[in-house]
């Protein structure tokens, strides 16, 4: 256990280092965006004097490294600055959006992960059967279409033709839990369709690759049922690759939802990022990107730790 804690600490330190590098990249990339914020803000009333005044007020006149350091220092203290567009605290602005995005991601994950694992195990169990082929074909085609296409098809079928769900997922803080579920059903379903194929196919492949192992033959020769062999003997040894794929997809559910949020006009972080880019609201863009990067790093760390926990050689050394 001590070893694992030490490893987690190491990985966390490494994660922080990565995050620092990412912060540099984000800052530089945003610097490279064309156009001048002050002019964009002032629009018609941009005179050299007003532009200079705004630049001074927003500290845009300072050299780049000074701005970077003060930005990073702010983040370390939990202060992400203010939005340029509406002068609100960014943490306050992002907070609600992040909660919405997380809600949608969790919703989609709760549906897609168990479903994908079950379908994958069943596909391994009945490999090369009709069931296996149908599941493979359906999941593959759902991943092959672009997300917005899947989203619009779902809107057409379930919202317009059948009228079961709302086509637009406008949620607000005062909604009850089930009402929220109801309104986010379509984006969650879209995301599920997008991520399920990857996880399901990895589950199937990871299990099948183990079926030629001597210990699987041994399990068969012990007269165990096929389901028992797959679930108790193959699955535990296949967990490491499966966990990695599941986590990559979970990360995608949080950071990759931009298109889906835009299609369903869902007030999440992705939507905010798109708006902010078009408004040149740079502090918001930077803050959102940092949150996405941190999410990725944290989830990958989780995957590493979980993979190690499934390996008895590392958990129980000689």
């Amino acid at each position: 256990m001590e070893k694992i804690l030490k490893m987690v600490a190491q990985r966390l330190a490494l994660g922080l280092l990565t995050l620092f590098v990412v912060s540099l990249i984000i800052f530089l990339a945003v610097e490279l965006l064309p156009g001048d914020l002050a002019e964009a803000l002032l629009g018609q009333s941009a005179t050299p004097e007003t532009v200079a005044a705004i630049r001074r007020e927003l500290k845009l006149d300072l050299p780049m490294h000074e701005r970077y350091v003060s930005w990073l220092w702010g983040i370390l203290q939990g202060d992400m600055g203010r939005s340029l567009a509406n002068q609100r605290e960014i943490s306050e602005l992002i907070g609600g959006r992040l909660a919405n995005t997380l809600f949608l991601a969790l919703f989609a994950a709760f549906v897609s992960v168990p479903l994908a694992l079950t379908l994958g195990v069943l596909a391994a169990l009945y490999r090369n059967s009709i069931y296996d082929r149908v599941v493979n074909a359906v999941t593959l085609s759902s991943i092959s279409f672009p997300e917005f296409f899947v989203a619009y098809i779902l809107v057409l079928l379930l919202a317009v033709v059948l009228g079961w769900f709302p086509a637009i997922s406008n949620v607000s803080d005062d909604l009850g839990f089930w009402e929220r579920i109801y309104r986010t059903a379509l984006p969650a379903l879209t995301l599920t369709l997008v991520v399920i194929a990857h996880m399901m196919r990895m589950t199937r492949a990871a299990i099948i690759s183990l079926l030629a192992s001597p210990y699987i033959e041994m399990a068969n020769l012990k007269g165990l049922t096929r389901t028992h062999v797959i679930v108790h003997h193959a699955l535990p040894n296949a967990l490491a690759p499966i966990i990695n794929v599941v986590v990559i997809n979970l990360a995608y559910l949080i950071v990759g939802v931009i298109v889906v949020e835009v299609v369903f006009v869902y007030p999440g972080l992705g939507q905010l990022l798109v708006d902010s880019v078009s408004k040149r609201d740079i502090p918001v863009v930077q803050a959102s990107c940092m949150i996405f990067a941190a999410t990725y790093i944290l989830l990958n760390l989780t995957a590493d730790v979980l993979s190690i926990m499934t390996n008895p050689r590392l958990m129980h050394p000689r």
Partner: peptide, 19 residues
């Protein structure tokens, strides 16, 4: 199998499930 006819494999290290 297992109940009335049992099998002992060549490499026990490979035939025992590591998990």
């Amino acid at each position: 199998r297992g109940a009335r006819i049992a099998y002992v494999a060549q490499s026990a290290a490979a035939a025992f499930n590591p998990a």
